[in-house]
Design a protein around this nucleic acid. Structure first.
Lengths: 246, 246
DNA sequence: CGGTCAATTGACGAATCTCAATCACCGTGG
DNA sequence: CCACGGTGATTGAGATTCGTCAATTGACCG
């Protein structure tokens, strides 16, 4: 993990700033271009693909960590060598909203690609929370979203078969990317996860992931090629993404 | 759902008040016996076994709902008729800490036994949160606990086989009961869930639940008889409960 | 040009699901 | 008091899916 040394404020050129927590924190109102609030210190790090950014159980400086660029995932490791990916982090995601209250990480975080992360100063955030209703509102929404995302993870894990599970997992990621403006708006989205990572996220073996992807491709639902996913049939994909009713 | 009409304040005789969120809200300091804070209005309801207390997507009065007595669970229902139980609520549990911020329920709640629930006044809680650091601290801890509980649910769903999954599910419940002083401290704990409910919580079929329970009983790990679970071998049960390492 | 990692595939065995039947229990109504 | 209906527990047979193990291929890197 290398501290980024650069004079320019990187958030100025961030693709997802507008659709993430950051804009609420960093935008000064009344300006055309975003301007950093100096009251909330930001520290930027660059991390390499596959590096473990946070170890579960390790101490860390409390406060929100944001994934600025690249993909990452939160995971647990078990005694039998298995690894469970709890959630995939997209650009603009917080590692966890609840890190504000803890100084010990409940999970590990690993970079799936080269990535840049930003650490906000904890005290500055807390001050903003108590003084600024907008920030407080945004934070509450974030917490709710994080909990619902975890519920979605549980739901996907109970999908009736491997193909459905993979489709639900990928469909959810695509929805999140679309909501954040990632992927140029077409039917193709970036997808840097390996089959092994998909397997660890869905509780399947790489073999079954392979097979499920082949089925979904043969059925013309989605096509998962290297580094990219293409939506072939949005309607049928939407039907496979498990949604609660009434 | 019937409004309870009684003059006595039921929290005075509550078994789990001391180990739940409620004591922070309802205890007046400087007293031997607990006394209600009149600033936070409480409304009590009695519900019958199997009644649905909250419908996902339905509007409700924002604010924390606490399960005072009995068991319940949060769940989703799907178009194919399947039901996924996200978490089991024990006496003293909040339906969700995040209900404070939402007026629309993201999930449904159903009573597994006859139960009593308490609704705290939302405004009173919010006032306490901003004024009382103890309440704020307790609330943050609750949110973290809820998120970790959801992570545990996901982890249990990926256990390598049915018996492990059941053992992890029940072991976790037993740990929570022990922490809250439910079950008279011995090796026997109440367990009012049906096999079908266990199946919906673990993503298995009732048939596999049955088989897994038999295996665990034959192996002398736990015995699950009507309305009660007995821990036969705490050490081996603890090993089956999946715990993240390092 | 090896070496590593991921993708892909096949064979085989184990675990799980489907479908169905039976039994036990309990509350209701006659 | 007993028949009846409903629900859940328990069990079995058979089909399907999934996991394990192993091997091959291809891309990328130093």
């Amino acid at each position: 993990m290398k501290l980024e040394r650069q004079l320019a404020w990187p958030c100025r050129d961030c693709d997802v700033r507008g659709s993430s927590f950051c804009s609420t924190l960093t935008d000064r109102v009344g300006n055309g271009a975003p301007t950093p609030k100096t009251e909330i210190p930001q520290i930027f790090f660059n991390v390499e693909k596959n590096s473990v950014i946070q170890e579960s159980g390790a101490q860390f400086i409390p406060g929100p960590y944001v994934l600025c660029r690249g993909w990452a995932y939160r995971f647990y490791r078990f005694a039998d060598g298995r690894r469970q990916i709890l959630s995939v982090l997209l650009p603009g995601d917080l590692f966890s909203a609840f890190a504000l209250f803890n100084s010990q990480s409940a999970f590990s975080v690993q970079a799936a690609t080269d990535a840049r992360i930003c650490q906000f100063g904890s005290d500055g955030i807390k001050r903003e929370l108590s003084e600024n209703p907008d920030v407080c509102e945004a934070f509450g929404t974030l917490c709710s979203a994080e909990v619902e995302e975890m519920a979605t993870t549980s739901i996907n894990l109970t999908a009736p078969d491997a193909a459905t599970r993979i489709a639900a997992f990928i469909g959810r990621l695509v929805d999140r990317m679309a909501a954040r403006g990632i992927g140029r708006g077409g039917k193709a989205y970036p997808f840097p996860l390996t089959n092994i990572e998909i397997a660890d996220a869905t509780g399947l073996t790489p073999k079954d992931v392979e097979e499920a992807i082949r089925i979904l491709r043969d059925d013309r639902v989605i096509d998962l090629s290297k580094e990219e996913v293409t939506i072939l049939d949005p309607q049928r994909l939407a039907k496979l993404v498990l949604v609660a009713i009434r």
